[in-house]
């Protein structure tokens, strides 16, 4: 049996792996492809806010009901000093009724299984995320209008990461639906399936 040289063999194994990985990534579809250099913000706690704006809901659990008539005039002003603020399901339902842009930060395969009716898919983990974010910018949207982002609630950080990306291209009223899609389902609010919003 031939005698092994660790370094020679190790370099060959690593080189072969990187080459195979590069080919695989090149051939992958949009849902599987990744950019080699990621651009993810580090997992960070919610931004501290000395005095939350009237629009932003507190972190307290929201009641499992639709928005009340008293919320109809609620404002969600821009917050250029903070990348995002957290809001409750009541606020999301209110914003949805007003036609606000809602973005689903979960994987597109999960989006297809069920999402907030009217929400657009913008998975922060897929290779076209930055292009889609820039696409929103290019649509000429009012960047001071509320944009709601959500993922799976709980420890899910995808919505916060997407909010960071949106903030970086100039959206200054990004609102994170803290409790995410599971909370929306619990409230029996409108859900859609498939690729269409």
């Amino acid at each position: 049996m031939r005698r092994e040289s660790f370094w020679r063999d190790a370099v060959a194994l690593v080189a072969l792996s990187v080459a195979a990985a590069a080919v695989s990534n090149l051939a992958a579809g949009p849902e599987r492809k990744l950019r080699w250099v990621g651009s993810y913000a580090e997992a960070a706690p919610p931004p501290s806010s000395k005095e939350p704006p009237a629009a932003a809901a507190s972190a307290a659990p929201a009641p499992a009901i639709s928005p009340s008539a008293g919320d109809a005039g609620k404002a969600f002003p821009p917050h250029p000093d903070k990348p995002w603020l957290e809001i409750s399901g009541d606020d999301v339902a209110l914003l949805r009724d007003r036609g606000a842009l809602i973005l689903d930060a979960r994987r597109s395969s999960v989006y297809r299984d069920g999402h907030i009716a009217g929400a657009r898919s913008l998975s922060v983990w897929e290779a076209d995320a930055d292009d889609k974010v820039r696409g929103l910018f290019a649509e000429g949207r009012d960047q001071s209008a509320p944009v709601v982002v959500y993922c799976s609630g709980g420890e899910c950080e995808d919505s916060h990461m997407l909010a960071e990306k949106l903030y970086r291209v100039g959206f200054d009223d990004v609102l994170v639906y803290k409790d995410g899609f599971p909370d929306w389902q619990r409230r029996n609010l409108p859900v859609a399936k498939g690729d269409a919003p």
Binding site: A22, N25, L34, R35, W36, V37, G38, S39
Partner: peptide
């Protein structure tokens, strides 16, 4: 910046 390269 290294997350994706590692994942690939």
């Amino acid at each position: 910046v290294a997350v994706n390269a590692m994942a690939i």
